[in-house]
Amino acid sequence: MKKLINDPANVVSDALRGIAAAHPELRVDHENRIIFRGDAPVQGKVGLISGGGSGHEPLHGGFVGLGMLDAACAGEIFTSPVPDQMAAATKGVDGGAGVLHIVKNYTGDVMNFEMAGELAEAETGVQVATVVTNDDVAVEDSLYTAGRRGVGITVLLEKIAGAAAEERRPLAEVAEVARKVNANGRSMGLALTSCTVPAAGKPTFELSEAEMEVGIGIHGEPGRRRVPMAPANEIAEMLVSPILSDYDFTGGGGVIVFMNGMGATPLIELYVMYNEVANILGKAGIPIARSLVGPYITSLDMAGCSVTLLKADDEILRLWDAPVRTPGLRWGI
């Protein structure tokens, strides 16, 4: 293992100290491992919190700030944060208008947020609503799985729901916008390499030079199947086809295309991939309304990418274009 770290056991707390040093506009609670907006709680605004295992940076801590999250809870690498953290974050962002929990659909995240919501509501009476993201078409949504994983759509949802909260809309409406984004979004990912969890010290799985893993999540877990390496245009087909056959993206106001890097893939390759995805969507008659290209929901040092499509409407596009000022996304200001 070759990594820019000190003690593998301290990676998360060391990184949080770095975030605090680089972003004085944020407030970091090191004891509870929470990154807050500097001005939290914002009175009269619905507070948005998210959180999850670390190792997906900039998600979630890099999306804290005006127009997105009010707080993010950092768990250990790839491990859900604990209820105490989420309950503390909930209390810390409650500006009197309630708090929205944005949870990626993983067994641990869902259970810990559930316990946190019960805890915070019992202690302070703060109103909590929850939206669970589950956009990964690689997972069959059935009784025989834990349900689809929450992946790329979470980034778009945090931006769009954050803008709705910034307009001072009530909790029920912010939650409804968030659920609409999740319902209209689908993702699919692929890995060229595994990743190395610092505490484990070696790659989570082995993948030869000639192979890639299709249908991966964001935790270095193996995917649905292993296939021979292929050129970008064929890879784009493998990612976009299952998305288009899962949901009708035609009609409406076009799509927001999010080409995400898994951590170790250079931007130039993401643009090669974006071009192939744009060609496929062009042939399918699906107009692209907006795009986002870059590593925004990563899996440590995994090489690979994921594609997220979000079917847009006027409201979604207006909220997408609204000002945002966070370490990870920043425009309109």
Binding site: V82, T107, G108, E114
Partner: peptide, 12 residues
Amino acid sequence: LVSTVGGASGPL
């Protein structure tokens, strides 16, 4: 355990 383990094992 709930406060320190995280993941699914903590709540379980």
